[in-house]
Structure formats: structure tokens, C-alpha cells
Amino acid sequence: MNQLQVLVKIIPQLLSDGLALGFVYAIVALGYTMVYGILEFINFAHSELFMFGAFVGTEVLLLLKSAGILADMSPTVALLLSMLVAMIFSGALGVTVDRVAYRPVRSAPKLVPFISAIGVSFILQDLVRMVEEAKNGKFYLNAPTLFTNRITLAPNMVVPEKTLYIVGLCLLMMVALTLFVSKNKWGKAMRAVAQDRETARLMGINVDKVIALTFLIGAALGGAAGTLFSVQYGSISPYSGFVLGMKAFTAAVFGGIGKIPGAMLGGILLGLIEVFGASFLGALTGGVFGSEYKDVLAFAILILILIFKPSGLLGKPVGEKV
């Protein structure tokens, strides 16, 4: 049981790691859930918008570094600047993807847009790789270190500064999104379209514009999460979107897809489960299953939720429309 005692000691550390990962999942999951809420369509390419945002954000940081400004400016400003640029680029890409690949097939049978989204995801992966290889000769990027300080929150809890920034910024985005959706006129239109697209159209809502707005917001959030991810973990490759996207989707389903608070809750819980699972799996199974099974754990959770509670934690079961 010695191993377990060691693990208990690192619980605060795991908690902070889990929260950082969980908030990133939550922000990416928001993109899946918002689009699903309105179109009942899994935007498979959302993970690529995340990846694209990560590349744009990292490139901005590297640009600042090569211009020699990064060392002089406050890391907070650098992070916010790169995040903002990433959000603009990702958001624009999200709207473009919707216009080019999804809108033409919107009335087609349900699987057609999904397959189109898989295609978009592959195209984006290779395009990003092409640009990166042409520019740097390698397809992955290493982010410059922004924050080096570690902050003592409690006697047993020393947290890297960047984790605090990530959690704080993610919370900020969540609050902003919640306020937007509940108070703003456009947010109201989004809720109306999600409830009933045809009736919303009859009430004079420009449905195509609302859908484009949804893609814009979802993709911008994805881009922001991408930048935060790359700052937290230090490197990004064109293929790192796929697994993270799958997990974020798991989080969205976990919380109840289509529900914005559900995505947030699901993301945070999944991040904690994954980090704790990775550390405890080995100790609990006597070393048979180590941390290499953490992805198996996440996918198994996805399958179990879909089988036993497809409506998720906060969702309500929906009857079949005839």
C-alpha cells in the first residue's frame, strides 16, 4: 500500500493538473455542444479548429519571440494577444468551413454532413502540416515558455502559474458565453433556433446567420483552447487535435450534448477522471494496467455513457420524432 500513500500525497498536484486539462476539454466541448444543439450534427472537424488555433497562437508567440519583444512584455499580455489572434483565425476558419462544406449538404440525410466533416478534418490536418513543413521544415511546433513561476496555494499544493492562468481564462470565457447566450439578443436567437429551426425562421430570425454565428463562437473558443493547450503542454502537432477532440466530444456527451452547462461540467469531470485514473490505475490493478491505458479509460467512459445514459448528466431523454 506504500504506492497508494505516495499517490495520496500528490493528490493536490493531480487536482491542479486535472483541472487544467478539464477546463481545456470543457472549452473545446462547448464548440461541439453548441453546434450539436442547433444542427444535431457532430462537427467532426472541430478538433481541427482547435489544432489550427493552437498553431496560430503558438506562431504568434514565436513571432513575438523572434522579434525580441516577448522577453520585454508581460507574459499575460503575450498570452492574451496570441489567444485573441488565434480566436479570430479559428473563428473565421469555422465560418468558412460551415459555408463551404456543411451548408450545401444541410438538407441531405444525417450521415452526409458528418462524412463531409470527416473530410474537412483530414484536409485541414494536411494543409496545416504543409504550411508548417514549408515554413519550418518540421510539422510540429514547440511553444516558447511563458510562465516559469510556481505559486504555493496551500501547504501541500504548489501550482504552476500557467495552470492558474488557464483555469482563470477558461472560467472567464465560460461566464462570457453564458451571459451572451442568456442575455444578448443574438444569444436568444441561438436558443430559439436550437429549439425549433423552422419556427424560428417564421419568427423572422435569420437562421443561416445564427448558424454562422454559432460556428464562429464555437470555433473561436476552440482556437483559444488550442493556444492555452499549447502553452500548457509545450508542443503541438497537426495530429494532436484528433484524440483531444474525441475526448472533448466525450465530455460534451458526458454532460448532455446540446447543453452548455453540461459541456462545462462534463469537461472538468473528464479531465479529473483522466488525470486521477492515469495515476491510480497502476496502483489499483497492481501494475497490470498502467497510465498507458488512460485513453482506453476515456473511450470506455464514452461508450458506457452512450449505452446507459445517452442523454448525459444534465440532458433530458428525447423521444423519437415520427
Binding site: 462544406a101 449538404v105 441531405a108 452526409v112 454532413p113 462524412i115 463531409s116 470527416i118 473530410g119 474537412v120 478534418s121 483530414f122 484536409i123 485541414l124 490536418q125 494536411d126 494543409l127 504543409m130
Partner: peptide
């Protein structure tokens, strides 16, 4: 990947 992606989107 690019080519298969294009095939999927264009066919759709």
C-alpha cells in the same frame, strides 16, 4: 489525407 478528405467532401 488531403486527397481522401477532398474525395469525401466533394462526393458529399
Amino acid at each position: 489525407r488531403l486527397i481522401f478528405g477532398l474525395i469525401l467532401v466533394l462526393m458529399c
